[in-house]
Simulated assay, not measured.
Amino acid sequence: MDRLQNIETFVRVAQTQSFAEAARQLRVAKSVVTTRVRQLEDYLGGPLFHRSTRVVRLSELGQAYLRDCTELVGRANDIVDQMREVRGTPAGSLRVHALTGLVLGHFGSLLREFQAAYPEIRLDLIVSDAVVDPVQAGVDCALQIFPAASTELISRPLFPVRRVFCATPKYLRAHGTPKEPRDLHEHRLGLYSGYPTRDRWTFHREGQQFTMYLNAPLLTNSVHLLREYALEHAGIVCVPTLVAGEAILRGDLKIVLPAHQLSSFWLSAVYAETSRNAFKLKLFIEHIAAEFNRVPPWDAALIERKLMPQGLIEE
């Protein structure tokens, strides 16, 4: 019996609350997971889980040992990573979940440079706008603008995600340019449906703030679709500058209500404290932090052209 391997399997089942999901994440058959847990239970002399056809719950014995087992697995993985660090050749797989709006247009060169620096690390990048718990999803890290789903997760802020209302000059000539936030009610709007603030929008100007609710005829979880919608002269949209920045600099889109700032979210790396790939994850996060600092390049260009204020309003 590989006791450490069995303990790691127990921890994975407890975190995912599923033998099948644990098997998928560990890339073994479900029967292998069942056998490993049973071997550990036989060694301890009691059940670690209460099982039914739909629910997997920790037993009293499992609850008593889960924290220590989680720390043990994390420490064991740290030791292996440190040994690889001494050799100077970090290797293995790293699974990352990232927002679509982040990776399209800004991530290709970053990935190329990371792989050039660490050629033996295999990246498995899942791209979607879904909000995930990295443990439940079986990834080492989630790059997202949403708060961590659990207090047991670590959230490291990387850079701010600014949002602006914008439209094409052609649309604004035809329908007028809003002077105050309430003027947005008179326009066809396209809004992102997944912000934590939902339909509530708060505008900041000269130390004052104004909150209102907006009803948009177009809601979508794709910020890229919103940009294309605006470029078709269809209406005013609210999109992150990391998606609209180039179009604004070209003059294809114009920022609406530039003196009324929206609060910014932070793109954060969310991961478990006991990540199996802590060393490789640290290298990846540091690489992102170095590439996109607290004023990412798409914002720096807009600020330099005085198209957007330098000050940041944080959510």
Results as ranks from 00 to 15, higher is better:
residue 8 E to W: 01
residue 120 E to H: 11
residue 234 A to D: 05
residue 207 G to K: 04
residue 17 Q to C: 09
residue 171 Y to K: 07
residue 284 F to T: 01
residue 128 S to A: 14
residue 193 S to D: 11
residue 47 P to D: 13
residue 12 R to P: 01
residue 227 R to K: 15
residue 313 I to K: 05
residue 24 R to P: 02
residue 287 H to Y: 03
residue 309 P to I: 05
residue 6 N to F: 04
residue 164 V to L: 08
residue 192 Y to G: 00
residue 216 A to K: 04
residue 36 R to S: 11
residue 60 E to I: 11
residue 231 L to A: 04
residue 225 L to I: 02
residue 181 P to Q: 06
residue 222 S to E: 02
residue 292 F to P: 05
residue 36 R to I: 06
residue 202 T to V: 14
residue 59 S to P: 05
residue 285 I to T: 11
residue 153 L to H: 10
residue 236 I to W: 05
residue 292 F to N: 06
residue 177 T to Q: 11
residue 79 I to K: 09
residue 309 P to V: 08
residue 79 I to V: 15
residue 314 E to V: 15
residue 180 E to H: 05
residue 174 A to E: 15
residue 194 G to N: 02
residue 248 I to N: 07
residue 50 H to M: 09
residue 238 C to A: 14
residue 160 P to Q: 06
residue 112 R to T: 09
residue 301 A to S: 11
residue 84 R to Y: 05
residue 13 V to Q: 07
residue 195 Y to I: 04
residue 79 I to D: 10
residue 213 Y to N: 09
residue 129 D to C: 00
residue 6 N to P: 05
residue 52 S to A: 11
residue 306 K to W: 01
residue 63 Q to M: 14
residue 237 V to Q: 00
residue 83 M to D: 08
residue 3 R to C: 05
residue 307 L to H: 10
residue 239 V to F: 09
residue 33 V to N: 03
residue 178 P to M: 06
residue 16 T to G: 08
residue 117 A to T: 08
residue 87 R to S: 09
residue 124 D to G: 03
residue 238 C to F: 00
residue 158 L to I: 14
residue 186 E to V: 00
residue 291 E to G: 00
residue 308 M to F: 13
residue 270 V to M: 06
